[in-house]
Structure formats: C-alpha cells, structure tokens
Simulated scan of single mutants.
Amino acid sequence: MRRKLPPFPALRAFEAAARLGSFKAAAEELCVSASAISHQVRLLETYLDRPMFARGPQAVRLTRAGERYLARIGPLLDELDASTRAIKGEAAQGVIRLRMTEWFAKRWLIPRLPRLMRACPGLDVQIETGLPPTDFRHGALDVIIHWGDAPVEGAVIEPFFASTRTPVCSPAYLAAHPDLKAPRDLARHVLLRDETDDGWAEWFAVAGLPASCPEGGPVFSHCELSTNAALSDAGVELAYRELLIDLLRGGDLVQLFDIHSPVRTIYSLAYERHRATDARILAFREWLFGEILAESEAPADAHPPLTAAQ
C-alpha cells in the first residue's frame, strides 16, 4: 500500500515557488494570493517536518532539503502535466522563457519565429538576449541557448550548432581594396575582433601564416557588433560561416578565401536537469532540433559557392 502522500496543493505551491524563486511569482502563476502560497508551503514543511525555504526580509531561497526535494518532484509534476495533456490530445501550452545571444536571436531564431509559432501554437515565447554565463539559479528562465558545450552543474547541455570560421567583408569593402587577393594581404587590412573569442591567430595559423597575424583592429563585445561593422564596410570579420549563411547567399557579405578554422560547437540547448520532461521545453527542443536536421539535409544545390578570392 502506498504511504499517504503530501497534499497536492502544497506540492504545487512549493514547486512553483521553488522554480520561480518567489512566493509572489508563484501566486501569480497559480492565480492565488501570496499568503495562500506561504500557507501551502507551511503545510508541506509541517508534513515533512523540515524547512524547505530559508526566509529573508526581501527574498526566499531553498534549503538543501528543498533543493533535493525540488530535484525529485519537479520532473514528476512535469511528467504528470505532459501525460495529462497527451491523454487529452493537447499540445504544450504556456509561456516559455528563452535567453540567447543577440546574434543568435537576430540571425537565426527571429527569421524562423513564424515556423516556431506554427509548430507550437500553444507556446507564448518570451525572448531575452545576453552574454554567458548560463545561469538558472534565479528561476526566471526555461531554456538558455548556451555558448559552446561546456558542462553546467544541474543542467542538460545538448550541442546543436557548429561552424567553422572564415574571413568575410562587405562587397563595397572588397571593391575598395583590390589588393585583397590572398590571405597574407589581410595583414594590411582592418581586422574586426571579437572580445569574447578572437580567433584570428588560429585562422592565420591554419592558413600557414602564423607570423602574419596583426594585433590591432577594433574590438567588439560580441559577434553581432562585429558583423554590423563588417556590413558597414569597416573591415574584415572572422565570421562563424554557418550563422551568416543567409547574408553570404544574399550577397550582403562575401567570403574571401576557402580557408576555415576547425569546426567547433558554438551553441547548445541548455535547461535544468530536473525539468527534462517539461512539456514546453520538450516542444521547443523538438522544433529546434527538427530545424537543424532539415537544414543539414538541404540539397547540395541550395549551397552555391561563396568564395570571392580563389
């Protein structure tokens, strides 16, 4: 016989408050008062005979026992929600909060947003941009488009986007600099640099010219700014080719040489491990990986040559 379980309203209140990091936010999500959330959490703490939250004057935070309990019941409630929706024939519904770099949002996700909305009509997408690190501790996010593939404690990291890097510039910049014909010529040109991950030295080494890499050039805090500078004829960017493929195909930028830095993972899907069965996260994950698979299987004639200098 199964032992008596805690009251379900108390479990819901605790999970929402723990996930969101706030009794007030939990109250808004569950359409009750903050005092009702506090009351239900107190009931659960009495039932378990231990505190789940450490309460301060301005905020609450989980105790170690609360963290362990959330890690166990969070996936169970997600699975219960997903199973209930599945048996009722419902798609995933609700708000999904996404965080990513400005570059990924502007160059990849937003152009595909209509397809996401058609594929997941029940999801209300909230998008914010920002730089690393990947941090779920404040409970304000469901999914982070993680830079690279480094592990994050308590999170699932699933790589999905890799690319080489290669020099690109605008057609106008190339037309104004007819001397730019070979890799060694770059030593005399303006190189646009990425503060987060400047890869010019690596590229010059791959090109067989390690001593030719200059040290100067404008430095930008993230790739979106260096791409905008390249589009504005300011110099040559060492671009992640796959992320700018639409700009290259459209002629807004030109790939200078058929020389590439090694392939590396630049983006991974990240979400909290205890929420691996959340229906909203699963729906977004399925759409994302479907888009990546469809693009990888595009016919060869969909990828015309992009190199300006041979």
Rank of each mutant, 00 (worst) to 15 (best):
L80H: 12
Y267F: 12
G199S: 04
A207C: 09
L76F: 13
C31L: 15
C213Q: 01
W103E: 06
L288D: 04
L225A: 11
G217K: 00
A205E: 12
P183F: 01
R19D: 02
R68V: 09
V143N: 01
Y47S: 07
M100Q: 08
A207Q: 05
F14N: 03
A279C: 08
I281T: 06
P132E: 06
A92Y: 02
L77E: 00
G66W: 02
L80Y: 10
I266M: 12
A187G: 02
D135S: 07
S163K: 05
A308R: 01
A140Q: 12
R12E: 15
P57V: 10
I145D: 01
D78C: 12
T63N: 13
V41I: 09
G250N: 06
L288H: 04
G148R: 03
E295N: 12
F53M: 04
A150T: 13
R115T: 14
Q40M: 08
P159V: 12
R165G: 01
E242H: 10
A10T: 02
K4G: 13
G89I: 10
F284M: 06
Y240P: 01
G94R: 05
R241Y: 09
E29R: 15
A270Y: 02
M52H: 05
A201F: 03
F257S: 03
G235P: 00
Q310P: 11
L244V: 11
A211W: 06
C120N: 14
E45D: 12
I110V: 15
R99D: 03
D278F: 07
F289E: 06
L288W: 04
L174N: 01
E272F: 04
H189N: 01
D149Q: 15
R55Q: 14
D135Q: 08
S170A: 05
A92S: 12
R97A: 11
M100L: 11
T63K: 04
I259G: 00
G154F: 07
L5N: 15
P171C: 03
I127D: 07
G216M: 03
D149T: 09
A205N: 08
E195S: 10
A86C: 11
A27I: 04
A26Y: 02
A182L: 06
L20F: 13
I266E: 04
Y69L: 13
L70V: 06
A26D: 07
F104V: 03
K106Q: 15
E224R: 09
D185Y: 00
S261M: 06
M52Q: 08
T101F: 03
A162R: 13
G216L: 04
S232C: 08
L231K: 01
E242D: 14
P299W: 08
V219C: 14
P218L: 02
A234N: 02
A10L: 03
F104I: 10
E128P: 04
A71T: 12
R61L: 10
R188T: 04
F53G: 01
K106I: 13
S38C: 11
M1N: 14
L192D: 00
R99L: 09
P171H: 05
W287D: 05
G21C: 13
L76T: 11
K4N: 15
L70H: 06
V219R: 13
H146W: 03
K106T: 15
G66A: 11
A229K: 00
P304D: 11
I259K: 02
F8W: 14
D49F: 09
D194I: 01
L30F: 06
A92Q: 01
L256H: 00
A201S: 15
F161G: 08
R19S: 11
V60N: 12
R68G: 14
R12H: 12
S296T: 15
C223T: 05
V60T: 14
Y173F: 10
V41F: 07
